[in-house]
């Protein structure tokens, strides 16, 4: 039971847009174990983004269960969702989404601030994480002084700072060239080997190929769920 990072059971998500009903998810179910490295793929309109929002606790499913460490978080209120995002999930975005007015260490620290962790220990932990992702010499640089690959490393460090159940990466390499893509993917792999659960949303096959398991979505349903053979 404790081996599950999370489980989704029969997830439905329906939008109403301009009188039209959009069924973005039509009963998605899968389990993710701790320490897994999975890629979620699918063409646009397949429900990928919707699933990402639900998994990231940014959105609530219309129907179905989403068990995070045994707790159903499908229908809890906004405040509790915020807390779960802050404590259980590490976000990595396509466009890095670092805060421009903060330096590297401060950016990594943001999730901790919302848990009230703002002491010296927090700063120390952030510096260590920056070193872990290879930015030990740039602790006090602003995002604008860093390359895209470096910014994404900061974002990865930030996603790890709250020791989450899983890291949720949304097209994390979408804005990077092939060389830095490789570096970032190597970093994810290293993290996974160290025991981190990683969920990667992507539409690139090369990126998905690094994952151990690939889930493909089509029209709001799971099309395939396969284990990658190395």
């Amino acid at each position: 039971m404790d081996n599950f990072a999370f489980r989704v059971q029969d997830l439905h998500r329906t939008y109403y847009m301009k009188g039209e009903t959009v069924h973005a998810l039509r009963g998605v179910s899968f389990d993710v174990f701790s320490g897994e490295y999975i890629a979620i793929m699918g063409p646009s309109g397949s429900g990928k983004s919707t699933l990402l929002n639900v998994l990231g606790c940014l959105d609530r499913p219309t129907q179905g269960r989403y068990l995070l460490a045994g707790q159903d978080v499908a229908q809890i209120d906004d405040y509790q969702l915020s807390r779960i995002r802050g404590r259980r999930i590490g976000f990595v975005f396509q466009s890095y989404n670092l805060l421009q007015q903060l330096n590297v260490v401060e950016n990594i620290k943001v999730p901790l601030q919302y848990q009230g962790l703002i002491g010296k220990d927090a700063t120390k932990r952030c510096s260590e994480l920056a070193e872990l992702v290879g930015l030990g010499s740039r602790l006090f640089h602003r995002p604008t002084e860093l390359s895209g690959g470096q910014q994404q490393r900061v974002a990865i460090a930030r996603s790890l700072v709250n020791d989450p159940y899983f890291v949720l990466a949304d097209e994390a390499t979408g804005n990077l060239d092939s060389k830095t893509t490789e570096e970032v993917l190597d970093l994810f792999q290293t993290l996974n080997e160290a025991g981190k659960t990683i969920v990667m949303i992507t539409h690139e096959d090369e990126v998905a190929a690094r994952a151990k398991r690939v889930i493909r979505l089509r029209d709001g349903e799971v099309e395939s769920d396969v284990i990658n053979n190395p």
Binding site: L58, D78, S82, R85, V110
Partner: peptide, 9 residues
């Protein structure tokens, strides 16, 4: 971004 990183309203 702040909301995603755990900021409540």
């Amino acid at each position: 971004v702040r909301r995603a990183l755990g900021a409540a309203r």
